[in-house]
């Protein structure tokens, strides 16, 4: 018993910090728990999308609103206005002054994964994230990086990796590398 404790202690010291033990899973869990303690957020975002087929990235800005339970609104203001509201099991999207498109998440696995990726960290819903992703983290509470890699083939068909960076209970960036190599980076203003 003593030996095991000693080995664990040695390994912890060797890998450079108690939080980083076990591939950073404990840190990942701590980050998510901390994020989940904020019941609502409103932040300005800048999004950059690097799409393989395009010669230059697509850039947009807008406002991101989250509140419990399970409500996330992404209002793109420029260059093309678009509202996307995820509320419970439905996603409604309205581009410009066009018609509202409503999709039910339980009927669409790809969108359902996307919704979980965006909402579960904000909700502090570790169980939902761990259903789809292997979690790893590095850094410490003042500056962390959370990397999520899909567990199943279904997830891997849509997403390669998702990376979140932040401080304490604040998210600074969200970077999604899609299965086809396209990358979208969301930067949130402090």
């Amino acid at each position: 018993m003593k030996w095991r404790v000693l080995i664990a202690l040695c390994m912890a010291l060797h890998s450079g910090g108690v939080w980083a033990a076990d591939g950073g899973r404990d840190l990942a869990r701590a980050i998510i728990t901390q994020l989940g303690q904020v019941p609502e957020r409103t932040r300005t975002f800048h999004e950059t999308r690097e799409i393989g087929a395009l010669t230059h990235p697509l850039v947009s800005t807008g406002i991101l609103v989250f509140h419990r339970p399970a409500y996330l609104r992404k209002d793109t203001l420029a260059p093309h206005p678009e509202d996307m509201i995820m509320d419970g099991d439905t996603v409604s999207i309205r581009r410009g002054s066009g018609a509202v498109h409503v999709v039910t998440l339980s009927q669409n696995p790809a969108l359902s994964l996307l919704a979980t990726t965006l909402r579960a960290p904000l909700e502090g819903d570790r169980a939902a994230l761990e259903r789809y992703y292997a979690l790893a983290a590095s850094g410490d509470a003042r500056g962390w990086t959370l990397v999520m890699t899909p567990l199943g083939a279904d997830g891997a068909r849509v997403v390669r990796t998702v990376t979140l960076t932040g401080r304490n209970n604040v998210i600074d960036t969200l970077r999604v590398v899609q299965a086809n190599g396209d990358v979208r980076t969301l930067t949130l203003d402090p």
Binding site: A110, L111, V158, D182
Partner: peptide, 11 residues
Amino acid sequence: LDSAAGSAFGD
């Protein structure tokens, strides 16, 4: 492609 939902079906 620019749309929030569209990126998933880009290909």
